[in-house]
């Protein structure tokens, strides 16, 4: 959660993540789903430093409200964010 109480999605744009797919995740930043507006903040980040060991094969990584998510896809991020949004409502 960021300072404004929004869900924070940090997309890693370090070299490893960039090469292994972060480029296509950045589409989320450009065209955010309408229900997310005002509730979700998406930012591009330098290396989150989870790629330095054997983990790198799970790049690209994102951090959603502090939780590291590997093998990230637009779909996976959307699921996680929608889950959080739902929990938020209840």
């Amino acid at each position: 959660m960021n300072e404004q109480g929004m869900i924070k999605v940090e997309i890693c744009c370090g070299t490893t993540c960039y090469l292994l797919g972060a480029q296509s995740l950045l589409a989320l930043e450009k065209s955010m789903p309408a229900p997310w507006i005002g509730k979700v903040e998406i930012v591009a980040m330098p290396c989150l430093e989870v790629c330095t060991n054997d983990n790198y094969s799970h790049a690209p990584f994102v951090r959603i409200n502090g939780e590291i998510v590997g093998d990230a896809t637009v779909d996976l991020i959307s699921k996680k964010v929608n889950d959080l949004l739902e929990r938020h409502v209840q």
Partner: peptide, 17 residues
Amino acid sequence: FEELGTVFAAMNIDVMA
């Protein structure tokens, strides 16, 4: 360029840094 990128990744070199 693709190979260069993989060398950066393997050596943990972040261009932006």
